[in-house]
Design a binder for these strands. Sequence first.
DNA 1: TTCCTGCGTTCCATACAGTGGAATGATGCG
DNA 2: CGCATCATTCCACTGTATGGAACGCAGGAA
Lengths: 260, 260
Amino acid sequence: MSSGSPVESVRRAFALLEELNRQRINSIQHLHEATALPKSTIVRLLETLRLLGYVANDPRQGGYQVTSGVRTLSSGFHGDPLVVEAARSWAIEFTRRHKLPIGIAVFDRDAMVVRFSTTRESPMSPFHATVNMRLPLLTRAMGRAYIAFCPAAERKYILGVLARSAHPEDRAARDPEEVREIIARVRRNGFAERSPDVQPKSANTFSVPIRHGRKVLATLGVSYFISAMPKTKAIASYVPPLLDLAKKIEKSVADLTRVQ
Amino acid sequence: MSSGSPVESVRRAFALLEELNRQRINSIQHLHEATALPKSTIVRLLETLRLLGYVANDPRQGGYQVTSGVRTLSSGFHGDPLVVEAARSWAIEFTRRHKLPIGIAVFDRDAMVVRFSTTRESPMSPFHATVNMRLPLLTRAMGRAYIAFCPAAERKYILGVLARSAHPEDRAARDPEEVREIIARVRRNGFAERSPDVQPKSANTFSVPIRHGRKVLATLGVSYFISAMPKTKAIASYVPPLLDLAKKIEKSVADLTRVQ
DNA sequence: TTCCTGCGTTCCATACAGTGGAATGATGCG
DNA sequence: CGCATCATTCCACTGTATGGAACGCAGGAA
């Protein structure tokens, strides 16, 4: 056990592969900046990953991209809650139709964890890295959608946990008035927005819950560049399809869990 | 470009991670036999993968296993056909209920390629490695289900390709009478079985198509140990739920592709 | 008990594999 | 054309991954 030395070249190769998964365009230059590795090292590792069948190099499409081979690196893991599985195909279909990126996050202790996203498939996505990202509950859209719609007893418990959190974005938990306001606004609107104070300021997110009975199974988020359109128009164009998507997923989950 | 040297430690780390995805139990001993790497190297690489968050070491559960972290290695790839996405959640639900492993394969040039499987989740799975495996069309259940139900014109074309194939399991393509028999039997039964001559002989597979109009989008397969029960009983227990599963997936695909 | 045997883990001298700075191509732009 | 940006290749050097060997630990047999 103990610690020791993570094998350096392996660490680098995985860092590179993660970055390749995040970005749509993958110039050597970009990878160089993102990973802080020397370019020659990047080229060598990319060549290795290519030989192993995980990435392809198509210069016409602007660089390197992951191939279906990466599936063998995660096919053994099926720990996702059923709601995420049920949501996947609908989210993909949604992104194909509306060209908007969708994220699906589930609650975990003190934050929402993104378990699936279609950012890569959307040409208009403001975000890159999302899967496995932890989003605070009180400042982010997907967190607010959860805390606002989950059962009261659960909310009370969560707020107790958050009040003791050291994370700066959980600070609001110590101000009951602010919490009350956040929740009231989300409920009044029927969807959640993130705090305007939070990075990155060039983008905004709307989020709605996926419910099953009283429980909130997950939250859906759609993100867009603020510069693309004024907020009122964004709300009018994005929120109704998002609510519709949530409904479809809720129905799928109901179908899947119905014992026959 | 060119070839050169795949970075050795990286090659090994990925081989190890693939093996971890295949097996349910992962003792050092097993990994040692499967990868032919020295044990000390395996321990070092596993420690590296653990530090990077891709595997966990739970000695009580019998060794190492992949964690949700591996998702970040493949989250950027969403190239699966819609049918695979639509089938995932139903397949998982099926495996949870019936405890039987399901595979989903799509046609690719001259074989079926497994794109998703629930082997890891089934306690009774005879198979381990499946994802990205290529299954010949004339000897394997999932291949036969495809060739028997796809449109006639496509079948004719495929058989032409197979007749020129060097793969031993494609040999039957050169015997029109044998092809006719295989297809007739599959159609008569309403499901496909694999050739009894084919490895591994300890297991058997049944397969049915997922159709959309005249096209076969994918095939579903369920595998079981021959020693578990006589074939007639296996057919009676496994085939009807499999057909039911195919129906549900076909309906999902129809819902997803319907333009509204 | 004591001696096995099988497996996981740790150690460390050594060789050589991965490194990265620098040079060379390729491409695009004003 | 000259300049800038980025991809690719080269290769001397060194730091790192290697793997044989030793150790620890459990379970089984006598």
